[in-house]
């Protein structure tokens, strides 16, 4: 790290030209969805607090959730939860030695993508 400037090895970090395999995409997306979910924790606790704050606050939430902007954000968070869960289950299975080697790891990664697509269609039915 300290010798980074003197290091003669070539660097190739053009993110537009690096083609990540599906396993790599599933991995970095798991990380991104996790960060997004951490950021949305306060909103979740805030909503829980208001839902428990009394009958008036409870019923005002249904008005809040009828806004289409709110529903869109909710859809995004629900999809981040679903994706993070599916990709997380895959990582737990890999810990157990299931789907560890390349062909199975690729199938697992595609299964995560497929499961998320199905969850998205289901969520669309509920949210829209």
């Amino acid at each position: 790290m300290t010798n980074a400037d003197k290091d003669p090895r070539p660097k190739y970090l053009n993110l537009l030209q690096i083609r990540l395999p599906v396993t790599g995409i599933v991995s970095i997306a798991h990380r991104l969805s996790g960060v997004l979910l951490v950021i949305s924790i306060p909103a979740g606790i805030y909503l829980l607090q208001h839902s428990l704050g009394g009958p008036d606050e409870f019923s005002s939430l249904s008005g809040f959730f009828s806004s289409s902007a709110v529903r869109l954000v909710l859809l995004l968070i629900v999809m981040a939860v679903a994706y993070h869960l599916f990709a997380g289950i895959r990582f737990l299975l890999i810990d157990l030695g299931v789907g560890e080697h390349l062909p199975a790891a690729r199938r697992g990664a595609w299964s995560v993508v497929g499961a998320t697509a199905i969850a998205f269609l289901l969520a669309l039915f509920v949210v829209i």
């Binding site: 990380r31 996790g34 960060v35 979910l37 951490v38 924790i41």
Partner: peptide, 13 residues
């Protein structure tokens, strides 16, 4: 559990 999980994950990031 959620916050412990968030701690380890964000710490890694």
């Amino acid at each position: 559990a959620l916050l412990l999980h968030a701690w380890v994950g964000m710490r890694d990031v």
